[in-house]
Design a protein around this nucleic acid. Structure first.
Lengths: 230, 230, 230, 230
DNA sequence: GATGAATGAGTATTCATTCAT
DNA sequence: TATGAATGAATACTCATTCAT
């Protein structure tokens, strides 16, 4: 039951049409966006336990509208996760452009601090959310960026060779799960500090590590099951 | 209203003393222990949302018995947390005995891997649980052990000087929140691996860090508030 | 936290206005009325201990509908009390129109017999119910009518001068709490009989009375606290 | 299922026996008395909803002891009612000795004020309690006293002829149900005042009354069904 | 006999989801 | 298409009553 989140729930609608229809369409689109925004906010504050009615209220729409766009609350959670992942991806993309491999790796951690200190939803990476193809795709793209950046750093001697993108991901997520987000009382400087510390874990010259994440897939599964709750 | 966990809350005023009493008491004590065990299990699987009836069923007792021992679910959560913290503390105590400062610091991370890979509940350290004096005490004792071990390592040059026990705590908890516990599909080797990685973050020669956890107290509060949800 | 009973609490923000809306609204209003009616019945039979599900069943709605209209059982109790008081007030108003002061006072008792012999819930006027502003207001208006009628009777020599509206109220409520309502096996004639008897207690020439209800307010409080239980 | 309250629950025990037995017996008797006393107190404060454990605690015994003496809570309620009625009866007996018929009738009301202002449990005159033979007997004896006193007053012209003992009872109970008992904030003077007022209702020269309580039995049934709740 | 531990039915309330309008 | 009324499953907690010790 992995819900998917296509931008428009009515794929059959023609691209062009009479104005009334287009207006309605854009109205619906706006509603959908408002619901997602409200859900991001509400989930951030109350976790997945946040009541749907509360989300509807904040979005300024009826419960029915929420359910029209997202057949279940889980679908909504998926949409929120996708939105978060997209934002994260965008931030990371910037990091990719950094020339210096060392600096680029640092930028990855900085991006994580920047993004996660505000949004903080990874706890939901469980159940239906983790199984959703769109979520998987976004996670895959992010992982690819992390892997590429790590490889560059390793090639340049700025990162130890015995770590993988999965180690990196685990460290980032770990830190993200320790600190509260800024809008919940978290402190920006602590986020940066811990991310820097985490980055240092990857420097050459550390302890000898035992075997690590077996393969990408297996690792992803392990990661996914890391549902902190529910 | 932070519930406290004395070994036996004895809600009905026990006379205590002669042996005849102890028989009944021991039975009750066994039930109490079974409830806590069941709660550890159930909370680990479903989080604090775990239904009390489910816990009662697993413990093989009626709902009433759960409530006799723990007036509210929160009291139960406190008891579970205390149990976890005690186990952790016991493991850490062993680490303290290690002579070599470097090895001792490593042992601390090993203890974390050992303990957390199996129990995994700290995420719930929120609300009433975090406010409970017994929980606070246990956390304080643990923090003291961490601080002492870190200091020894720093004095011996085995750890960078710009980190504190709070950094250490954050790293450990972070990793603990990434991986699933062994009984939920987690892999022992991954726990060890990540803890080793985390330990390396504390080696001398890392990045320059911005200001960190302001003071012990403030930091503890930040830490405590790091409830992933609710 | 005294719940108030505006005709429609409309928990989900109604737009109100066009006719389309009114259709739905009227349906909801009907349900609300049915819930109140069912509650009057059920409370009369079982007291405030009456289970909400029972009320819902009698009203032919789901529990949820009851709670949509009345956030807590106490709110429902308030609504029921207000409904009762309004009916009573309406009956009393008629009594006011009676010219002859003696007959008017008699009419007040008759109205009480007429009303209370059927509804019989005042005993619940305790706690949140008694503190509700709408309830207080209705009680105040009723008391005003009683006071005015009593004064007229006193002026005309049809009632002793040493009694107040609070004495009158107490007598009426007292009788109301002795007899079962008609729909529970009570007999109309007994109600009338006892109310007539009570009316006679106010005739001139009785025993010398000790100090009575101190002042309106204090008396009202005493009255209010006269919760038979809880 | 009308529970009966014989003073000693073990009617088979011989009158004389060894001391150990007598001690135990007197112990049991003491316990029983303490339970009743505690129940009077607790019921007065919380109504019949008072939890049995609370009563046991106040009595200083275990729940088991309560249930040994009173198989159900209703049996306990019966015992409490009987105790109350006995006290009332004792007070009334004194009134009987008053020579002057007018004064005697007044004394009856005074006794009611004296007793009911403190104990206040009549609300329980419902269900199993009202059906209990011991309760019925006590009520019957009380009614006989009231009837006799009323007859004397009527014979002496101190009371109207068109009222019966049932009218008198209804008036007394009515007043008793309006005011809170002294230990719940009630005021002694108000009790006296209202009882005097009620007494005046019986003076000669009142309104013409419609037919009244049909017969003793029927009336008693009507009275019994006047359960204010449950 | 006395105790209090255990039980489980019962009740208020919340919230995801459906559907008539 | 949007709304919000209705529904009922789910859950924490209380308390009368039973029964092993």
């Amino acid at each position: 039951m992995a819900p998917s989140t296509s931008p428009s729930p009515t794929p059959d609608a023609p691209a062009g049409g009479d104005d009334g229809r287009r207006v309605r369409r854009s109205d619906a689109e706006r509603n959908r966006a408002r619901v997602i925004a409200a859900a991001m906010e509400t989930f951030a504050e109350h976790g997945l336990d946040a009541p749907v009615p509360e989300i509807a209220r904040r979005a300024g729409v009826g419960k029915g509208t929420v359910y029209r766009n997202f057949p279940t609350k889980e679908h909504l959670a998926v949409a929120v996760s996708v939105a978060h992942l997209r934002r994260y991806e965008a931030l990371l993309a910037a990091a990719v452009d950094v020339e210096d491999p060392d600096a680029a790796l640092g930028a990855v951690f900085a991006a994580a601090a920047e993004h996660l200190s505000r949004d903080w939803v990874l706890g939901q990476s469980a159940g239906a959310v983790a199984d959703d193809p769109e979520v998987r795709d976004a996670q895959g793209r992010i992982r690819a960026i992390l892997a590429a950046t790590l490889l560059r750093a390793q090639a340049a001697g700025a990162a130890r060779d015995d770590v993988t993108a999965d180690d990196l991901t685990a460290l980032v997520i770990g830190v993200a799960r320790v600190l509260p987000p800024v809008n919940r009382g978290g402190r920006e400087d602590l986020w940066r500090r811990l991310m820097l510390l985490a980055r240092d874990a990857l420097r050459p010259g550390g302890s000898a590590l035992p075997a690590g994440f077996a393969g990408a897939d297996e690792a992803r599964v392990a990661m996914r099951d890391a549902r902190l709750r529910r």
